[in-house]
Every structure is written in structure tokens, then in C-alpha cells.
Computed example of a mutant assay.
Amino acid sequence: MTNRRNFIKQAGIAGLAGMVAPNLAFAKDSPVTASLATAEKIKWADGSRLVVSVSMQFEAGGQPDNPESPFPQNMDKGYKDLPAATWYNYGYKEGIPRMLDNWDKLGIKVTSHMVGAAVLKNPQLAKEIVERGHEAAAHGMNWSSQYNLSYDAEKKFIKDGADAVKNATGFTTVGYNANWLRRGENTLKILQELGFTYHIDDLSRDEPFIIQVNKKDFAVVPYTLRCNDIVLIEGKNFSADQFVNQVKMEFDQLYAEAEFKRRQMSISFHDRIGGSPQMVKAAHDVISYMQKQKGVSFKRKDEIAQMALKDKTTIRE
């Protein structure tokens, strides 16, 4: 706590020095010099001021019968919720193709977390995502929970999903996202054994960090619920402009903090939600705004994980 207080105090002096006496910031023995030196050590190795990571969930087609949806959960037992199924179908028929075109227009690459069963149903679409330069990450074999599985059953569940992605796209997954982030006690050990290098099921920081799994380095690339369409648009009935405003405010704050420390911003879009016309327009507007700010870069999560693993200044827990 003392170190953090001193750093904040020094950072405040640095800002004050820039306003009152610009030359003070370069004084040989001033506290500002130490503050800036510290800040330099914790920025991104490639010189980025702020790194933005976009997720595109590929789930449609992998859902069970009568899944969660915007429709009332009042179906009689024994009947299928056919309208809800069409809501999911929109994700691969319209949503992902529209988002892919949008990413091309913006010139960014994203990470697509792919459910194995969804990939098996639409292998050509999964392949197209990779062919257009995006990362394919694993998202389980289906929508079943995995935290309650035995070690062997969970290992098969993860591997089957990863194999489905590999067979359809040729891409070897190195990142993982559990259903609703609910991994189990054995998940990380299994991921390390299967050759994964990072997971995203963590909300505890606004920058990547490294943990030890099976006595080896393993990267954590934090996810988000704050800038997530399934939470805000579907879950809280936000309008598209409310979503833009919230994401923009998050960006502005992180961009300001990024002057002094390494910051990562995450945004998440789901095929059937983020791929709707108004949400694609919202994504285009807010990302275009970010791209106008100096030092902002957009990276796939596998790229962020590799940067974190190679950087000696990355936080370790």
C-alpha cells in the first residue's frame, strides 16, 4: 500500500509539474523523474499506450434444446422452443458474417471463442473466421457445465472442443473460455497439460498477468462483464447507444490511466447479439473513436498472452 501511495503521489506531482513548471519534469533529482521511469517499466513492450481486445463468441448452433433466450421461460415440458432456436440461428446466418465484414472495415483482428458443437454444425464459417486473420479459441465442446465434471471427463470435454476447432479450421487453440467463465478446480491444470497458454475466465485485473500452473507460467488475459453485449444488451436491455456510451466511458478512463501503467480493455460480442445491425453499427462507431486516440492498438488474445509471457515486468501472482 505504501508503494502505491507513493506512486500516486509522484504521479500527481508529475502532472502538476507539467502544468506549473514544464522544465521541472526533467530535473535530475526530482521525484517526477523516478515516477516516469517507473511508468516506463510497466507499459506495453511494443510501445502501445492502451491495448484493446475484442472477443467474438461463436456459440450459435451449439446450444441445447430450450436454451436461455429473450423469450419467456414458460414452455410446457416436452416441447421445443422453436422461436428461440431461430434467435440462435441468426448468429451464424447473419451475425458473424456481418461482424467479420465490420472487423475488415475497421482493420482489426479479434479472438473468436468457439463452442465445439457450433463449429461442427458450421465448419466453413469457423474456417472463414481463421482465414480472415482472427484467432480461434476454445470454448468447450458444448454448453454443458464443466466445473462439476471429474478430471478425466473435463479433460475430454475440453479436448473434444479444441479438436473440433482444429479439424475445421486448421488452427491450434491456445486460449480457453469456460461456459459463463465457470471453470473448475482442475481446469487450469488440464489446460496446461493440453498445451494451452492462457485463459480468460478472470475479472480481477485490467491488464494481463501470469500465474503458475503445474509449476509452469500460464497467462491470464482478463475478460469483461462491463463491456459485454450478453450482459448489457440482453441481460439489462440496454439500447445500442447506451452500450456505446458505457464502452466509451470505460475506454476514456483506461486511456487516462494508461499514461502511467499497463492497461488492457476488453469488449465482448456474441454472434446473435453483437451481430445485429444496430450493434455492429455501435461497434463500428466506438472502435473508430478509439482508433483516433494516439497509442491505441487492437490485439488478439493469443498475441496479448505471448507479450505478457515474454515481458519480465508482467505481474505475477
Score class of each variant (00 low, 15 high):
residue 2 T to V: 13
residue 4 R to G: 04
residue 7 F to V: 11
residue 7 F to L: 12
residue 9 K to H: 11
residue 11 A to K: 04
residue 14 A to P: 00
residue 16 L to A: 08
residue 16 L to S: 08
residue 20 V to Q: 13
residue 20 V to F: 15
residue 22 P to V: 11
residue 27 A to V: 14
residue 32 V to Q: 03
residue 34 A to H: 09
residue 37 A to K: 15
residue 39 A to L: 08
residue 40 E to I: 12
residue 40 E to K: 15
residue 44 W to A: 03
residue 45 A to T: 14
residue 45 A to V: 13
residue 48 S to N: 14
residue 50 L to G: 01
residue 50 L to A: 03
residue 54 V to I: 12
residue 57 Q to E: 14
residue 58 F to W: 08
residue 59 E to K: 04
residue 60 A to T: 07
residue 63 Q to K: 00
residue 64 P to I: 09
residue 64 P to A: 10
residue 67 P to A: 10
residue 70 P to M: 07
residue 71 F to W: 11
residue 72 P to C: 05
residue 72 P to E: 05
residue 72 P to K: 03
residue 73 Q to D: 13
residue 73 Q to H: 05
residue 74 N to C: 08
residue 75 M to C: 03
residue 76 D to M: 08
residue 78 G to K: 12
residue 78 G to W: 11
residue 83 P to F: 08
residue 87 W to D: 08
residue 89 N to Y: 08
residue 90 Y to D: 07
residue 94 E to C: 12
residue 96 I to H: 00
residue 102 N to L: 13
residue 103 W to K: 02
residue 104 D to T: 10
residue 106 L to T: 04
residue 106 L to K: 01
residue 107 G to H: 05
residue 107 G to C: 10
residue 111 T to W: 05
residue 114 M to E: 01
residue 119 V to P: 01
residue 119 V to A: 06
residue 121 K to Q: 14
residue 121 K to H: 10
residue 122 N to E: 14
residue 124 Q to Y: 06
residue 129 I to W: 01
residue 130 V to F: 08
residue 134 H to C: 00
residue 134 H to I: 04
residue 138 A to V: 11
residue 139 H to W: 01
residue 145 S to P: 04
residue 147 Y to E: 09
residue 149 L to P: 01
residue 157 F to T: 03
residue 164 A to G: 04
residue 166 K to E: 15
residue 167 N to V: 07
residue 170 G to S: 06
residue 171 F to K: 02
residue 172 T to K: 12
residue 172 T to F: 11
residue 174 V to F: 13
residue 181 L to D: 10
residue 181 L to H: 09
residue 184 G to M: 07
residue 185 E to F: 03
residue 185 E to R: 06
residue 186 N to W: 06
residue 187 T to F: 01
residue 187 T to V: 01
residue 188 L to S: 05
residue 190 I to R: 06
residue 192 Q to T: 05
residue 195 G to H: 07
residue 199 H to Y: 09
residue 204 S to A: 15
residue 208 P to H: 05
residue 218 F to Y: 14
residue 218 F to G: 06
residue 220 V to N: 02
residue 220 V to Y: 04
residue 225 L to D: 06
residue 228 N to P: 02
residue 230 I to M: 06
residue 230 I to N: 07
residue 230 I to R: 02
residue 231 V to N: 05
residue 231 V to Y: 03
residue 232 L to F: 00
residue 235 G to P: 04
residue 236 K to Y: 09
residue 237 N to S: 11
residue 239 S to T: 15
residue 240 A to K: 06
residue 241 D to P: 00
residue 243 F to R: 00
residue 246 Q to S: 06
residue 249 M to T: 07
residue 250 E to T: 12
residue 251 F to I: 10
residue 253 Q to P: 00
residue 254 L to M: 12
residue 255 Y to M: 12
residue 256 A to M: 12
residue 257 E to K: 11
residue 257 E to Q: 11
residue 257 E to P: 03
residue 262 R to E: 08
residue 265 M to C: 10
residue 267 I to G: 00
residue 268 S to F: 00
residue 272 R to Y: 09
residue 278 Q to V: 12
residue 279 M to G: 02
residue 280 V to K: 00
residue 281 K to P: 00
residue 283 A to T: 04
residue 284 H to G: 15
residue 289 Y to F: 07
residue 289 Y to P: 04
residue 292 K to Q: 15
residue 294 K to Y: 09
residue 299 K to R: 15
residue 301 K to N: 05
residue 301 K to A: 00
residue 304 I to H: 03
residue 305 A to L: 10
residue 310 K to I: 09
residue 311 D to I: 03
residue 311 D to W: 05
residue 312 K to V: 06
residue 314 T to C: 05
residue 316 R to V: 14
residue 317 E to S: 15
